[in-house]
Simulated assay, not measured.
Amino acid sequence: MSETTELPIRRSGIAAVLVKKVDGEDRVLLLKRASRTLNGAWCYIGGGIEPGEKAWQAAKREIWEETGIDIRTLYTGNTFDQFYSPATNDIYMAPVFVGFLEDDQDVMLNREHSEFEWLRFPDAMERATLPGNDVVLAFVEKHFVKKAPVEWLRIELAGQVMGDY
């Protein structure tokens, strides 16, 4: 008699990719981690969903916590950041959100990161530390930068300020 073992999928976090025009060219934000988890890794924003939060609210909060930016334009990316964890024997899967910044929005890092850089997409794909991050970045570039994002993926943030959702 054989026993079937299922590999659990953990869905407790989000990922957020931020895009901004720098010198007329689309750039993506990468942050260098300065914490115990992934110390020294270059990556986009990620974090957990808190009790009572919707995933998009967690994305808005994590963007605020990690960069000091109150995001004004946010889309659901319609893709997922995912990896297998041998430590917990599960698959971590997080929805990706895409945020567009305006000229007056500047990054102020929290203590989780030591550096940040606005990179051209090909450079960001090379710099990103974790395998799979390059795939997410290529997806975002193709569907949100090289062509206009699909409007029905936009999250209505009008009137939503940090702490008011």
Results as ranks from 00 to 15, higher is better:
K142N: 14
D103T: 05
A34Q: 06
V161F: 09
T4K: 13
A87V: 10
V135P: 08
F144Y: 07
I63C: 04
A158E: 13
K146T: 10
L130Y: 14
P86I: 01
D23P: 09
N89H: 14
D106M: 10
W64M: 11
V135Y: 09
A34M: 03
M1P: 12
S35D: 09
D90N: 14
P149L: 00
S85V: 08
V145Y: 01
S12I: 11
V28F: 03
F144D: 06
E102P: 07
R27H: 05
V17G: 07
F97M: 02
N133K: 14
F83M: 06
E25W: 10
E65L: 12
E66C: 10
D81W: 13
R33Q: 04
G13V: 03
N110A: 00
G99W: 01
A94T: 08
A128Y: 05
L137W: 01
F144V: 06
R72W: 12
T67F: 02
D134H: 10
G52R: 08
V136R: 02
S12L: 15
K21D: 06
G48R: 12
R120A: 10
C43S: 13
F80W: 13
V150Q: 12
L18D: 03
E117D: 03
P86K: 06
D81C: 14
Y165H: 11
N133H: 13
E25A: 07
A58T: 13
I91Q: 06
A15H: 06
D134C: 12
I155L: 12
G68A: 07
S12V: 14
R120W: 07
T73F: 12
F100M: 01
N110G: 01
L7F: 11
I63F: 04
R61L: 09
F144S: 07
Y84Q: 03
T79Y: 12
K147H: 05
E66K: 06
K20V: 05
W152D: 07
L18W: 02
A15C: 04
V161H: 12
L30R: 00
L137R: 01
A16N: 06
G77H: 05
K147L: 09
V161L: 13
P51V: 00
M162Q: 15
K146L: 13
L153E: 08
E156R: 11
G68I: 04
W152F: 11
S12C: 14
I69M: 00
A87P: 11
T67W: 02
V28D: 00
K147W: 09
Y92M: 15
V28P: 00
I155Y: 10
M1W: 10
S2T: 13
T4I: 15
G159C: 07
R11E: 15
A148Q: 11
L153F: 14
Y44K: 02
Y84N: 01
E115M: 04
L101T: 00
V19S: 01
E102M: 10
D106C: 10
L29E: 04
Y92W: 15
K20P: 00
P95C: 04
V96E: 02
G47F: 03
T129I: 05
Y165P: 13
L38M: 12
N110E: 03
P51I: 04
I91P: 10
T76S: 11
F100S: 00
D81M: 14
G132M: 05
E6D: 15
F139Y: 08
D104V: 04
Q160T: 12
K147N: 07
K142A: 11
R154S: 08
D70A: 09
S35P: 04
